[in-house]
Design a protein around this nucleic acid. Structure first.
Length: 485
RNA sequence: GGUCCCAUCGACUAAUGGUUAGGUCACCACCCUUUCAAGGUGGCAGUACGGGUUCGAAUCCCGUUGGGAUCACCA
């Protein structure tokens, strides 16, 4: 039987980084087995619908390098892939359960339900729907039920959970899980607005869409027994379950906005590369060998296995993510990065040639984490109005430095080549000839040319800056300093 | 609170009964050096606790403790 996985998010907001990892694991697993990964939108809660959420999910997954085999926009043999377009289906299946006596109608109002929970809380017992005392069709009887139905009263359909017996299933990452039916609530399957709840819709769709593996977050583990009961009630073959460990805040609670931005798009906006994010997130809860850190999507697919997924939750360490991004920044082909860099420069109203952008990129990328740091980190590359670090200047600009630079200027002007190797010879030669330690030359020069004490090698920097620019900057600086009065 | 899940350095993890418990991030030191990085070398640091089983336990079993998830006409 072929592997069919699914990512089934609810369009209630921007895609969470945890959601991205769930999508990724589904994708990696399906692709590893040469199977299909489908996207299904679980929009059965009309009250929580958020405009644009579905687009964001699709957009982010594509950005991350995942292309679904079947989806709302792409279609497929088991569509539609939006649950709100399948409501008729769920109603029919709910009715089937009603006929089989595996489900029943309940007429309680939310106030009555609240009161029930209040009573149970006061009595110190677990909150659970009590079909023998609430206004279910069992307490109401057939006549009253029919009368209520005819009068158009609101009702929902609940799952009739057995009063005793074990419910068990085998989870690929957790092993066998056993729950007693007495601890399982009579879950609502069909809401009074005619829409299904997650539980019904997800079981019906996973069956109809022939999903072989349900890979989802650990937060679904407690409701899985309900799903098992549903498969049994329909007499359907169960998919295999795999509940993924949670992504955690630094304090080990479920990763949330409390500790910063957790939307996948925020990481994109900050400037993380999709490959780096995917690489990092893949290694949160799974690791093929632990003797290496950098993997391409193709390699992740090749090595992925659910058996090696960890059980314990994983703290999301932004520092390590940043390190990884820097690794990608350094290892990536400069030519490939060029379009992104040009876009960033364009956003800063900087217009330079590809050739020059590439040189700057190669020069600076060793000391930054994000591509988008280049405009500010390398401000002196793009404008003559870069600022000079006063502290750095105070430290390295004095009479001696002044005379050195004055003496060096004509030499630089005469220099035939401004390639860094040549500059090394020219300036290094001057240094040797006059017995001046090169740092007494390099610091003042760096200060004048870049304004800051952090940056790439000076000769390389000068080469990229170009002879004219360097000479002009030195002359201008000397002029400004020379006549204080 | 009920139910369920989990437990190796600060963090991510490797070691599926036999290792001086390994790697990566972070941190510290040193080297390199032209500043800052990067890179290199080294260091700090862990099997939550208590019982079993076994010749031998991070690994299997039980308990304790701790953490987490979940208990909606949300997903």
């Amino acid at each position: 039987m072929s592997v069919r996985g699914r990512f089934a998010p609810s369009p209630t907001g921007f895609l969470h980084i945890g959601g991205l990892r769930t999508a990724l694991y589904n994708y990696l697993f399906a692709k590893h087995h040469g199977g299909a990964c489908i996207l299904r939108i679980e929009d059965t809660d009309q009250t929580r619908f958020v405009e644009g959420a579905e687009e964001n999910i699709v957009d982010i997954c594509r950005w991350a390098g995942m292309e679904f085999d079947e989806s709302p926009e792409k279609g497929g043999p088991f569509g539609p892939y939006r649950q709100s377009e399948r409501t008729e289906l769920y109603r029919n299946y709910a009715n089937e359960l009603l006929q089989k006596g595996m489900a029943y109608r309940a007429f309680d109002t939310s106030e009555e339900l609240d009161a029930m929970r209040e009573r149970q809380k006061n009595a110190g017992i677990a909150a659970k729907y009590d079909r023998t005392v609430m206004r279910s069709e069992y307490t109401l009887g057939p006549d009253e039920t029919t009368r209520l139905l005819d009068s158009g009263a609101d009702y929902c359909i609940r799952l009739k959970v057995p009063v005793s017996g074990d419910i068990r299933f085998n989870d690929i990452v957790r092993g066998e899980v056993i729950v007693n039916a007495r601890d399982v609530d009579d879950q609502i399957l069909l809401k009074s607005d005619g829409f299904p709840t997650y539980h019904l819709a997800n079981v019906v769709d996973d069956h109809l869409m022939q999903i072989s593996h349900v890979i989802r977050g650990e937060e679904w583990l407690p409701s899985t027994p309900k799903h098992v009961l549903l498969y049994q009630a329909f007499n359907w073959e169960m998919p295999r379950f795999a509940h993924l460990p949670l992504l955690l805040n630094p304090d080990k609670s479920k990763m949330s906005k409390r500790f910063g931005d957790v939307f996948a798009k925020s990481f994109r906006e900050k400037g993380f590369f999709p490959d780096a994010l995917v690489n990092f997130v893949a290694l949160l809860g799974w690791n093929p060998t632990a003797d290496r850190e950098i993997f391409t999507m193709t390699e992740l697919i090749e090595y992925f296995s659910l058996e090696k997924v960890n059980k314990a939750g994983a703290v999301f360490d932004t520092k390590k993510l940043e390190w990884m991004n820097a690794q990608y920044l350094r290892a990536s082909d400069a030519q490939t990065l060029l379009p992104s860099l040009q876009r960033i420069l364009c956003d800063h109203s900087i217009e330079i040639s590809d050739e020059r952008a590439k040189n700057i990129l190669i020069l600076l990328r060793e000391r930054i984490t994000f591509l988008n740091e280049i405009p500010s980190f390398g401000a002196y590359m793009f404008s003559e109005s870069y600022e000079i670090d006063e502290e750095y200047k105070a430290k390295h600009w004095n009479e001696e430095a002044s005379s050195i630079i004055h003496a060096l200027l004509p030499i630089l002007k005469q220099a035939e080549s401004f390639e860094h190797v040549q500059l090394n010879e020219t300036i290094g030669g001057y240094s040797k000839e006059h017995g001046i330690a090169s740092k007494f030359i390099i610091h003042p020069l760096r200060m004048i040319l870049t304004g800051k004490q952090v940056g790439a090698g000076l000769y390389e920097t000068m080469e990229v800056l170009g002879k004219d620019t360097c000479i002009n900057r030195i002359e201008r600086f000397l002029k400004e300093q020379g006549n204080p009065s």
